[in-house]
């Protein structure tokens, strides 16, 4: 393992400290709960929107904390849902009279941590509601599993809900909006390489030089199939086909298109992928109205990408276009 780390056990804490030091005017780090929060939260005139999830997906979600997006994020260890206490502590620190909204990616651990935390804080009179995000089409949504995973599409739920919360939308309205965005968002990813969690010190799974994993999860979980490595066009066409067919997105639909890097894919390759995906959608009569290219939800040092589509309507476009001020910036 060759990484820019010290003691693997300090990896998350040192990353969070750096995030706060890089944004002294807007972010605050609370080590006790792995919490990155807005310095001005909680506010009486807005619902506090919080995320948990595991670490290792940066910029998701600690670097999405800021005006117009999240009020706080309390990640667990790498690829591990936060302990219940982190969520309880974060909820109490961000408790607003308008309520607290949990945005939870659909994983067993996250679901249980937020469910237990909700039981505990509700007993103390705090009003909470939950939106579960499950945009990954690679996993069948069946009663025999816990259902589809939450992956890169969570960005759109955070962005829309964050913008509406900034305009003082009620907790109930935010739940409706979050569920609406989730219902029109679909993602599928693929891995060219495995990834190495610092505490493990070796790749999470083996992927041969001439193999790829289609439908991979953002923790390296298996996807739909392991296949011989294809060309960029073949890979992107397969991802676009899987995503488009799932909702399905139809001729005349207006969409947002996101090409998300999984951590070790050059920006050049992401734009190459974007170009192909864009053309494929146009050829299907689907109008790409908003474009997103870069790293939004990564899997440590995994090479690969995911394709996300969101079916837009006028209200949703306004929320996505609304200003936000988060740690991720290049200006």
């Amino acid at each position: 393992m060759k990484k820019l780390i010290n003691d693997p056990q300090d990896f998350v804490a040192e990353m969070l400290k750096g995030t706060a030091l890089a944004n002294p005017g807007s972010l605050r780090y609370v080590p006790e709960f792995n919490l990155i929060m807005r310095v001005d939260a909680p506010r009486e005139d807005k619902v506090s929107v919080i995320q948990g999830s595991g670490s290792g997906h940066e910029p998701a979600h600690v670097m999405f904390v800021g005006r117009g997006m999240l009020d706080g994020a309390c990640p667990g260890d790498v690829f591990s849902a936060p302990p219940v206490d982190y969520v309880v502590g974060t909820t109490k620190m961000l408790n607003s009279p308008m309520g607290v909204l949990y945005l939870v990616n659909n994983y067993t651990g996250d679901g249980m941590a937020f469910e237990m935390a909700a039981e505990i804080v509700e007993a103390e009179g705090i009003r909470v509601a939950t939106v579960v995000i499950d945009d990954d089409v690679a996993v069948k949504d069946s009663t025999y599993t816990i259902g589809r995973r939450g992956v890169a599409g969570n960005f759109f739920v955070i962005k829309a809900v964050g913008a509406a919360a900034e305009l003082s939308a009620s907790l109930d309205d935010l739940v409706l909006l979050g569920n609406r965005v989730n219902s029109v968002t679909r993602t599928m990813g693929m891995a060219l390489t495995s990834c190495t969690p610092p505490a493990k010190g070796s790749p999470l799974f083996e992927l041969g030089q001439s193999e790829m994993e289609m439908g991979v999860g953002i923790h390296g979980e298996p996807g739909r199939s392991r296949e011989p490595l294809g060309s960029a066009n073949e890979i992107i066409d397969a991802l676009v086909e899987a995503v488009v067919a799932d909702l399905p997105y139809r001729r005349g639909d207006q969409v947002a298109l996101m090409i998300n890097g999984l951590g070790a894919t050059p920006v050049s390759e992401l734009y190459l992928a974007y170009g192909r995906a864009h053309e494929q959608l146009v050829a299907r009569g689907i109008d790409v109205a908003r474009s997103y290219v870069g790293e939004y939800c990564t899997s440590l040092d995994m090479a690969g990408c995911s394709v996300t589509l969101v079916r837009l309507d006028d209200g949703l476009v306004d929320y996505l276009a609304a200003p936000a001020d988060v740690a991720v910036r290049i200006f």
Partner: peptide
């Protein structure tokens, strides 16, 4: 356990 154990294990063992 619930103060430190994350993932699925914390809520399961804590409960």
């Amino acid at each position: 356990v619930m103060g430190r154990m994350g993932g699925t294990s914390g809520p399961i063992w804590g409960t």
